[in-house]
Write a protein that binds this DNA or RNA. Structure first.
Lengths: 143, 143
DNA sequence: CCCTGCTGTAACGGAAGCTGTTACAACAGG
DNA sequence: CCTGTTGTAACAGCTTCCGTTACAGCAGGG
């Protein structure tokens, strides 16, 4: 499985913003976030751009610009983040159309679509159970 | 997300083998399976090789060679198949180590590991609820 | 009204994974 | 021994992801 790190990067950025906000610093630049994640600021801007389009963060331009949370950390679930940064389905179908003259080839895709839908639904339910505030709490507890 | 089709290919192959077995043909060659999936026989051999290592299918060499199910279709769950063909975790961690001088950078990985573990567990529970026989039943129902 | 600092995004490159293809050695029934 | 099939290596094309550089655009503050 592809195992990309987009969800991890986005959650890390949000958790860091939540901690900074608690310390009185509402506004962070992509450079400041990138310093904690240890990556290039453009990666952070791309990720936070996805989150902005989903309404999870706000951005300010001009001098004194930066990013801030659009909601309280308790109100942002990992499902919100997942929807913001991932679009591909979990499991791919056949790359080439199966043989439609075979009874299995003819019916397998809708059948699998149904099963895969149930799996994704279970995944989404689980992601919804955890908020950015939960992640931050567990993060600070781990010493 | 990468959305590879390995689970789909493997389940398709197993469902087709289950149907052929029900029709009295226990043994299928990789060419015959490839004809239903509509792909190259080597792809099928690679996939069935994973399933063989997991003990889900048997193989016979020599003349009259081919593949057969090692268990009844009711006894093979999609979780068995998933474990046989996927090894990467669902969500990747940071590609480069986060900044350990930041409290979030220091604690985020174990915290996320815990959350991701719960999500994978939910996914596994759901995959376990469906067998190859279930998939075949739904496949033949869809006309 | 300009200056400055940051965002938004395009363009590009390297690395890795997946799929598909060819080729060929190994194996085992008949 | 012959034949048909498996097992696997090697390779190519394609795509995605991550990282980097570059630069236009925006908006507060002086």
């Amino acid at each position: 499985m592809a195992a990309n790190s987009r969800l991890t990067i986005a959650v890390h950025a949000l958790a860091w913003m939540a901690l900074a906000g608690r310390r009185g610093q509402e506004l962070l630049t992509s450079d400041q976030v990138a310093a904690s994640v240890n990556t290039n600021p453009v990666i952070i801007r791309r990720s936070l751009g996805d989150l902005r389009r989903a309404g999870l963060v706000d951005v300010r331009h001009g001098a004194g610009a930066g990013w801030s949370l659009a909601r309280a950390p308790e109100e942002i679930t990992l499902l919100d983040v997942y929807d913001a940064v991932e679009q591909e389905p979990l499991f791919g179908m056949h790359r080439t159309e199966p043989n439609l003259e075979c009874p299995v080839g003819r019916g397998i895709r809708p059948a699998l679509g149904h099963v895969y839908g149930g799996v994704e639904e279970a995944l989404r339910r689980e992601l919804q159970r955890t908020s950015i505030a939960d992640v931050l709490r567990q993060t600070l507890r781990a010493r």
